[in-house]
Design a protein around this nucleic acid. Structure first.
Lengths: 129, 129
DNA sequence: CTCAGTGCAAACGATTTGCAGGGCC
DNA sequence: GGCCCTGCAAATCGTTTGCACTGAG
């Protein structure tokens, strides 16, 4: 009786799965509009929220003003250049180790698959060397 | 000739240094208003931006809608509970190790001091166990 | 048939900006 | 005295919401 499989919802997910970029809601809106010209932006937002809650997609936060979305839910991390904003996916982080007694004592359970690692990309690092 | 040391700017920094919470811009606005009743919210925003660019404070991104700020620039990480939103400071992360060939090959230089680690806090982890 | 989902437009809330006046250097 | 900074108000922009309608189950 709940969670209906609408055309809009499946196409939004489908379009997001297609790309390896990390589009914003309006990017996705534009992508979906090519398939469903009458779709509304609010529908895109509502479905992105829905899909995130379901764990089908990931909402990224590296950009302050607008959210970005990732249709790839294979556990992976993001490298985010603080200088140029470039985002790189890293898939082989199964074994990130954090050595911190405070962390161990806190009882906090990290979800390292979705971590966003700030830093400087190769290009920007050269400039600032 | 540039970067004047105004009363507003130093009080904003001073107030932010005092607390160990991670206040939003309006939280800081309220704090500063107690000292400078005629201060404007825009001034707070402009100075927070300024101070962040100068590296005097850190702008945190764990909250989607509004930015939070940290006056403690001693290298430390944040544990962010995805469930209840609780944020915990971790100071002994000098030796976070990330074992990733992709990362090594990418030439990306991580700034691990400012990393935000998602996960579940002790309390929420129990609930979801 | 029912009600979750949609499209549209208006509302919202955090942040930014234009502008005239103020005060640091 | 120059011009960076401020306070105020209005503007901006991403996101959310109210509402009547639609279509999936």
């Amino acid at each position: 009786m709940k969670n209906r499989e609408t055309n809009q919802r499946s196409i939004i997910l489908e379009e997001l799965r297609k790309v390896t970029t990390h589009p914003t809601a309006s990017d996705i809106y534009e992508m979906v509009k090519k398939v469903l010209p009458r779709v509304g932006l609010a529908t895109v937002y509502r479905n992105l929220d829905f899909l995130e809650k379901k764990g089908e997609i990931i909402r990224l936060k590296f950009n302050f003003q607008k959210s970005r979305y990732d249709g790839n839910i294979e556990g992976h991390a993001h490298l985010v250049c603080k200088c140029c904003g470039k985002v790189t996916d890293i898939f082989d982080v199964a074994d990130i180790k954090i050595k911190s007694e405070q962390l161990r004592n806190s009882g906090f359970k990290p979800t390292l698959e979705f971590i966003e690692i700030p830093g400087l990309c190769k290009k920007c690092n050269k400039i600032y060397r």
